[in-house]
């Protein structure tokens, strides 16, 4: 019986195989090292951090530093900031999904005057990042008394051209006969939307949720502008607020604990949702 040809996979068993692994491991170490340092810094005293050499192994202050950060923090308790971030990220992710689903539904399934114009207008806003329109947006938010509120954190960021475009593309692959069958079955447009389109889009929704949650969680500039009350700070901008101005000393262990805490929710979302959308990819239902 002839053996497998000595190309491809088999060849990689040699030195090349180990070399590429070594390269990958090195890469992981380089990327993970700062995170490890942050973790180490969050488990020792401030004294140990400011005094060189910096420790490379965790100390014994894990519990104190983290409970200190969560309960009292520096400007506001980190637990509070985590809550604010969670509300903002969830609000943005879910809101964006809902609004994009509805607007894509309108664009794909209804013939109304200016349909193409509206689509291209939405598409055009893809090219305008938050930073470009941030001053007028702030003006509007301030006039509407949205400063220091969840509404102010969420609503200005809740429309998504990308997600609308994505759902539009998906809806266009749904056979017309399905909509017609639903019409014959007696489903009015919104019934068709909820009973058929939304369940069919759930894989796309899961994938988008991950991306949009992280997008919402990582917002920095907008919360920095719109929240002045520390109790409304989100965690990502809150970290920056923890740095002292002037000659005060920085409470590094608490700041580092906060950083680690800020990283956890996106990681959890990615890990749990990953399972869901891999399952979604395996049983395609079109």
């Amino acid at each position: 019986m002839p053996g497998p040809s000595h190309t491809g996979m088999v060849e990689k068993r040699g030195a090349g195989h180990w070399l590429s692994h070594a390269g990958l491991i090195l890469g992981v170490l380089i990327i993970a090292f700062p995170i490890w340092l942050a973790f180490v810094a969050s488990t020792v005293t401030n004294q140990e951090i400011v005094q060189p050499p910096m420790p490379l192994w965790p100390g014994d202050r894990f519990y104190e530093n983290y409970s200190n950060a969560l309960v009292s923090g520096i400007n506001a308790p980190v637990a509070r900031m985590l809550m604010n971030s969670a509300v903002m990220a969830l609000g943005i992710a879910l809101g964006k999904i809902l609004i994009s689903l509805l607007s894509a539904f309108a664009i794909v399934y209804f013939r109304f005057p200016g349909r193409r114009l509206f689509f291209w207008l939405i598409f055009l806003t893809l090219m305008l990042p938050v930073e470009v329109r941030i001053v007028p947006t702030y003006e509007v938010a301030a006039n509407l008394n949205l400063l220091n509120s969840y509404s102010g954190l969420i609503f200005p960021l809740i429309a998504s051209a990308t997600a609308t475009f994505l759902f539009r593309q998906f809806f266009m692959t749904v056979p017309d006969e399905l909509a017609e069958a639903a019409r014959v079955d007696g489903a009015r447009p919104m019934r068709f939307f909820w009973d058929i389109l939304v369940p069919m889009s759930r894989t796309n929704m899961a994938a988008l949720f991950v991306i949009l949650f992280i997008y919402g969680w990582n917002q920095y500039l907008w919360p920095l502008l719109i929240t002045t009350d520390p109790s409304m700070n989100t965690i990502v901008m809150g970290i920056k607020q923890m740095f002292p101005s002037g000659d005060d000393y920085a409470d590094w262990p608490v700041i580092m604990a906060t950083s680690i805490l800020a990283m956890l929710p996106p990681v959890i979302v990615v890990i749990t949702m990953q399972k869901l959308f891999i399952r979604g990819l395996v049983d395609t239902e079109k």
């Binding site: 056979p175 006969e177 399905l178 017609e180 069958a181 639903a182 019409r183 014959v184 079955d185 007696g186 489903a187 009015r188 009973d195 058929i196 369940p199 069919m200 239902e285 079109k286």
Partner: peptide, 20 residues
């Protein structure tokens, strides 16, 4: 009259079954 109110049933070429 809308299709739903005509009291007809239709069978499509690609069946048009709801996949989920």
């Amino acid at each position: 009259t809308e299709p739903m109110d005509r009291d007809i049933a239709m069978v499509f070429q690609n069946y048009a079954l709801y996949p989920h």
